[in-house]
Design a protein around this nucleic acid. Structure first.
Length: 579
RNA sequence: GCUUGUGUAGUUCAAUGGAUAGAAUGCUAGCCUCCGAAGUUAGUGAUUCGGGUUCGACUCCCGACACGAGCGCCA
């Protein structure tokens, strides 16, 4: 019995095709979820194959089906037939579905069944990566959520994933900050992040209108980069304050990292980059700056990738190159994933092209590199939320608002809970709602931010999933038998079947989310699964039925619960017992 | 100018080239003596435009239109 039924079907269909002398080079079964009208799964691969060889697709499909019917489970447990122009449809029997339910029981079972898919692969994933000296705002939400979820998904699928928060702690913001802090004679360690942020705004306004301040700021930056102890002290204090503020938010959001190796970590390693790229003629000096051009590329043959500025300073390209080196040489990564805003696509394309040439030149094994980009956060007016001029919504403020709104709803609807329970429910509901709303849309494409949408508790929201889970748990509490031993015999009602077939799609969705690095597939799936559960709940009772029916339905709701909770965990969402 | 992303119900979003394009929200009309109504049932309503590729196109190609992004010393 397969956990990933699509993978199992893929193999047997391929085997049957081979037995029919069909070339497996040109034929792939193409198994997918089927429309309810036709069956549970379908194989579409016959059509392109038949087209290629100018065969009658229905005839080819019939050959394969005939072979399948003589194999293993197909005689009794899986009904298979040909439909339309040459689709092969599979309908799983109630016995087959019940066996599947009986065999795969827990998050651990699902995890170990999926873990073969990506095992042996070491991946470094880079996400969140805020700049220090500034508070996080809504614009920081997506990298954090998408990155964290992708990490969880890949890990669940068996990969060895290392999370690295590539904090922007070595940027030009420090020149301005040190300038203004010294000018005002402030003690850095007494400041809050809010105050530091405001100082930065004052400083940069000053630098804008006053040439002298600008050059002082530049000079302070150079001193910092050259290791001036006073400036380093200020710099360290600012980073420490920033990190503490970030950690508060990470804790609240349930996001964590294995490393937080910021840009400053690589500051002494940039010379090796200049040296190696120059030595192999990958980079050359152009207008005083050390640049990489990619002659074969229509865009990047002209558009430079600057790895050292004309004034001799490094920039983000340099640290990104040094970071690749560290992640492959020290962390032994096979694959690197960067979760950032889509506006950095050119940068990452150039980075990847450069790394490929650089690694080939030195005979190093080049890692797979993926830029997992996402769209811009837009305001209600359809324009990007501006960081400084507009009114950026602080992440901290958003989280507090979410919890406040959730508390109002909980106070109104959860009258049976104690005050302590209400507060807990409100916190989870508030945070989950924000995360879910953020993960729900496909990451490519812009993002219209609205309080209303973020903090809504009706419809396709975290509250809907949490509510279904709470109802399942309520049934389990009311059931006086030992639910852990419940098993299913054979599914009977339509609602049972529809719910369980949806459960069996979980591995497909998971694979898709992992392959495309798009968590929203899981959101969509969980919402649909919950819909099937609600439909089941309305027509089929669990408690108070004959023993075998209750046992079967308990099994069904237990597995539904497990898959809902597993999916929620993969999205980084907490679940509740009651609400 | 070059490169690139996005155009799907009033609104916000789904849909590895597959069978009758799914949801949510909104509006309309129902459903709590029955495992939790934060729920559920039904109705309403959409692929920007024009070509092409093919058994089949929201999806791929070409063109137009609309909005956005990136393009030498910010990250």
């Amino acid at each position: 019995m397969w956990f990933q039924i699509d993978v199992g079907l893929f193999r047997v269909v391929l085997e049957a095709a081979q037995a029919c002398n069909i070339s497996t080079v040109d034929f792939s079964p193409d198994i997918r979820q089927a429309d309810l009208r036709f069956g549970d799964f379908q194989a579409n691969g016959v059509l392109p194959y038949a087209k290629l060889y100018r065969l009658n697709p229905r005839h080819v499909a019939e050959q394969i089906v005939e072979k399948l019917r003589s194999m293993g489970d197909f005689s009794e447990k899986i009904e298979v037939n040909v439909a339309g122009p040459g689709f092969i449809n599979f309908k799983l029997s109630g016995v087959f579905l019940a066996e599947w339910l009986n065999l795969y029981k827990s998050e651990n079972d699902y995890g170990s069944a999926m873990a073969q898919n990506w095992s042996g692969k070491r991946i470094v994933i880079d996400y969140s990566s805020p700049n220090t000296a500034k508070q996080m705002h809504v614009g920081h939400l997506r990298s954090m959520n998408i990155g964290d979820s992708i990490h969880r998904i890949l890990k669940f699928c068996g990969a060895d994933v290392i999370r690295d928060n590539h904090v922007g702690d070595w940027g030009t913001q420090f020149g301005i900050l040190i300038m203004i802090i010294k000018k005002k004679g402030l003690r850095t360690s007494d400041l809050s992040l809010e105050e530091i942020e405001s100082l930065y705004q004052q400083g940069s306004a000053l630098a804008k209108e006053n040439e002298d301040s600008l050059s002082v700021a530049r000079n302070e930056l150079v001193k910092l980069q050259n290791g001036d102890s006073e400036n380093l002290e200020i710099w360290e204090a600012i980073n420490k304050i920033s990190q503490a503020a970030f950690d508060e938010i990470y804790t609240e959001m349930g996001v964590s990292f294995d490393h937080a190796l910021g840009e400053s970590f690589y500051r002494d390693q940039v010379h090796r980059i200049y040296q190696e790229l120059t030595e192999k003629h990958i980079a050359r000096v152009d207008n005083g700056a050390l640049c990489v051009f990619h002659e074969e590329h229509e865009q990047f043959s002209e558009q430079p990738f600057i790895v050292r500025k004309a004034d001799g300073a490094s920039n983000y390209a340099t640290t990104d190159l040094a970071t690749v080196l560290y992640r492959t040489e020290v962390l032994h990564a096979d694959e690197l994933i960067y979760v950032t805003d889509g506006r950095q696509r050119d940068h990452f394309q150039q980075l990847f092209l450069t790394v490929q040439k650089w690694y080939v030149a030195f005979g190093r094994k080049c890692p797979d590199m993926q830029h997992v980009w996402f769209g811009t956060i837009l305001g209600e007016d359809g324009k990007a939320i501006k960081t400084r001029s507009g009114s950026p919504i602080k992440l901290k403020e958003l989280l507090n608002e979410a919890k406040t709104r959730a508390k109002e709803i909980v106070d109104e609807k959860s009258k049976d809970l104690s005050n302590l329970e209400k507060q807990h429910v409100a916190n989870v509901l508030g945070i989950d709602s924000i995360k879910y709303a953020d993960l729900l849309p496909n990451r490519t494409g812009d993002y219209v931010f609205s309080w209303e949408k973020m903090l809504s508790f009706d419809g396709n929201t975290a509250a809907y999933l949490l509510y279904a889970i709470a109802r399942i748990k309520s049934i389990l509490r009311k059931c006086n038998c030992d639910v852990t031993n419940a098993t299913a015999d054979c599914l009977e009602t339509e609602a049972e079947r529809n719910l369980v077939r949806k459960l069996t799609y979980f591995p497909i969705i998971l694979s898709k989310a992992a392959k495309e690095l798009r968590p929203h597939h899981i959101c969509t799936y969980l919402f649909e699964l919950t819909g099937e559960y609600s439909a089941f709940y309305n027509v089929d009772r669990v408690l108070g039925e004959q023993a075998n029916i209750t046992s079967r339905r308990l099994t069904i709701i237990l597995r539904t619960l497990n898959i809902l909770e597993t999916g929620m965990h993969l999205l980084g969402l907490e679940t509740l017992e009651k609400m």
